[in-house]
């Protein structure tokens, strides 16, 4: 009995409740509509579509966690830029081998994130401004490097679009696994805790000897690496270069973070939540397309679900964190 109440309490306390419920329901509906969605035949395509969204949601997480209005609007263009550089620069210069191009792309992500972080931490500029600036810079640069969608991806990227075990283990999941491993390492090193502490109260962290500026740089740089992985995921998905597709991922990523139950003011949050949030946004899309609903409706449903989910998250959070509020009736 006590165990049961404990479990119930945990479930109700968890910020993930809403998003898990959402994913379960959407998955059930999707499977009802097209039972073959998870078959070995279709699964790789589905997963390939999903991977960039999940990774780009992961990319926004550290920035949001780091607090004081932390957000990274540049993750979408960064993912597009990485894709364009791979297809438009590295491949033509025969630098497409995995040992060269993979580290290079991750470095692009890390450096971009680092530049954002430096401008925010040392330049003391507001994150929205800085990452909006890099949003514009990166989407402009992508178009300069590659004015039209063209090109082919290197073979190792094509290889990632396949699957093992007769289609039941899509290889693009390796990218997500890579990101999770990196996050896990950061967690074991105590870096995630420090990012969260800084996000919760940077003055407390600073006076306790945390090098706050470095922590911010680390947060944005790790986000950049995740965005670079998402760029590889995009290359896997589209098999070529496209300079414009990346930016639409930014707002979806913010939505995924909020859906996943991470407060946008930072200091708290999980990595799993936003991943599930991205998945549920994706499942809405597949549901609508298998319902043969006009694509025009997607935006409306997107918005409605997002609104509903953040309201539900907030209702749950306010009921459970029994913090005395200055209630002025």
């Amino acid at each position: 009995m006590a165990v049961l109440t404990n479990v119930v309490a945990t479930v109700r306390r968890s910020p993930l409740t809403v998003v898990i419920a959402l994913v379960v329901v959407l998955l059930a509906v999707n499977l009802g509509l097209s039972p073959t969605m998870l078959s070995g035949h279709q699964l790789p395509n589905t997963v390939n579509l999903l991977v960039p969204s999940v990774l780009v949601a992961m990319a926004s997480v550290p920035a949001v966690m780091s607090g004081r209005g932390g957000i990274d609007l540049s993750v979408g263009p960064l993912l597009g830029f990485v894709n364009v550089v791979l297809v438009g620069v590295l491949v033509p210069h025969s630098l497409g081998s995995v040992w060269l191009s993979l580290p290079l792309m991750l470095a692009i992500g890390a450096v971009t994130g680092l530049v954002n972080g430096i401008a925010i931490a040392y330049g003391r500029l507001q994150p929205v401004v800085v990452t909006l600036g890099s949003y514009l810079v990166l989407s402009g640069l992508a178009l300069v490097v590659m004015p039209q969608p063209v090109g082919v991806v290197p073979t190792w990227v094509t290889y990632l679009s396949g699957a093992w075990l007769g289609g039941y283990l899509p290889r693009s999941l390796l990218l997500v696994v890579g990101a999770l491993v990196l996050w896990r390492i950061l967690r074991y090193r105590g870096a995630v805790g420090t990012i969260l502490a800084t996000g919760s109260d940077d003055r407390a962290a600073f006076t306790s000897g945390v090098r706050v500026s470095r922590v911010l740089c680390l947060a944005y740089a790790s986000g950049g690496v995740f965005a670079a992985l998402a760029g590889i995921g995009l290359s896997v998905l589209i098999g070529s270069g496209d300079p414009t597709v990346g930016r639409q991922y930014t707002l979806a990523a913010v939505a995924a973070v909020a859906l996943g139950g991470n407060p946008l003011i930072g200091g708290r949050g999980t990595m799993v939540g936003p991943m599930l949030g991205a998945s549920s946004l994706f499942l809405i899309q597949t549901m609508l397309s298998s319902l043969k609903v006009s694509s025009l409706w997607i935006q409306v449903v997107y918005g409605a679900v997002l609104l509903f989910a953040v309201c539900a998250n907030a209702a749950l959070a306010s009921r459970l964190t029994a913090r005395p509020r200055v209630g002025v009736a």
Binding site: V254, A258, L264, I265, V300, G303, L306, A315
Partner: peptide, 23 residues
């Protein structure tokens, strides 16, 4: 009323309004 982040709320309503106009 629900103390929600304006960024997300306006993103959502914007999406709904934009979609409605599209339709």
């Amino acid at each position: 009323v629900w103390h929600l982040p304006p960024l997300v709320v306006t993103l959502a309503t914007g999406s709904v309004v934009g979609g409605a106009v599209l339709i």
